[in-house]
Amino acid sequence: MRFVLSVALMGLALRCFVIMPRSIPSESMMPRLLVGDYLMVAKWPYGFSRFSLPWAPAGLHGRLFGASPARGDVVVFRAPPDDHADYIKRLIGLPGDRIQMKGGVLWLNGKAVPKVRESDFVIPMAANTECSTIPNVETPYGPGATTEGKPDCRFARYRETLPDGISYDVLDQGDTPQDDTPIFTVPAGHYFMMGDNRDMSADSRFPAVAGDGIGMVPAENLEGRALFTIWSTDGSAHWLNPASWWRALRSNRIGRGFR
């Protein structure tokens, strides 16, 4: 019993203060993250808050230790306004930054963030690939098929590069209301988060509504920084059929980092 208790306490300590696993349930961070990806999240870079501890009292506020996050970090956090669900997004705006979308282009502190067209992002259709598209937006993207007739999913992909030099890919399906926003000024002690799948992400461009937009994210809501992918499955596996586990495995995604 002492051994079992020691192992359980060690696991809890690792989960609270060092590293934790997380799975991806939505397409809001495509192309970097797919539904069915599993990743490790580092707990120590941003320090610790009440969201680092299971069952912590709601009255605890602030953070202990750690450094401030950087623009471009992929962050796991508790989503406002109810602080119940874990979200994962890319940190775009630091306190004091001015953020705006104009014609689908990200503007940061009065300057357009370079956005360069790349080859289309194409993934095979799978059990957990929704290939979600925007209603009433006429684009040649979404569900399709390869030249061999196999169903796939295709999106327009672009490369963004922040002033800090961090680059990453984003998806853009066409003209949508969230492509043009007012200027958001990030208040002290908060951060501005966006999904890389720009037309399919409920993020800081939208007011904080439970299960939808999140508004500005308080610093104490940050839980950790994404490190690398440890597993990825296309959703076709069956628990009682071990052979299907390997057929569903997307091995080329394992070990991919976020820097």
Rank of each mutant, 00 (worst) to 15 (best):
A13Q: 00
W55G: 04
N136K: 00
A127G: 05
G224Y: 04
R253P: 09
S167W: 04
S251R: 13
F184Q: 00
R250L: 14
G66P: 10
D234L: 09
S204Y: 04
P187T: 02
I88D: 01
P140T: 08
D86K: 01
S244P: 08
G93P: 12
D97N: 11
P182R: 07
A248E: 08
M29V: 02
L60T: 05
R2S: 12
L249M: 12
D164E: 07
L39M: 15
D120V: 06
A126P: 05
H61Q: 08
R205H: 04
D82N: 14
G224I: 01
G36W: 00
N197H: 14
G72P: 07
A208T: 06
Y168N: 06
R32N: 13
E118P: 02
G47P: 09
D152W: 04
F17C: 13
A42C: 03
N241S: 14
M101P: 01
A70K: 14
V105I: 04
S232P: 09
D172W: 12
A145S: 15
I99C: 07
F51W: 08
A42Q: 11
T133A: 02
S132M: 06
G257A: 11
T176Y: 01
V122I: 15
P57V: 10
V76Q: 06
T176R: 06
R159T: 14
I92S: 03
F48H: 15
T229N: 11
Q173G: 05
I254E: 11
D169Y: 10
L227Q: 10
G257P: 15
G72D: 07
L227N: 09
L171N: 09
D164N: 15
A210I: 04
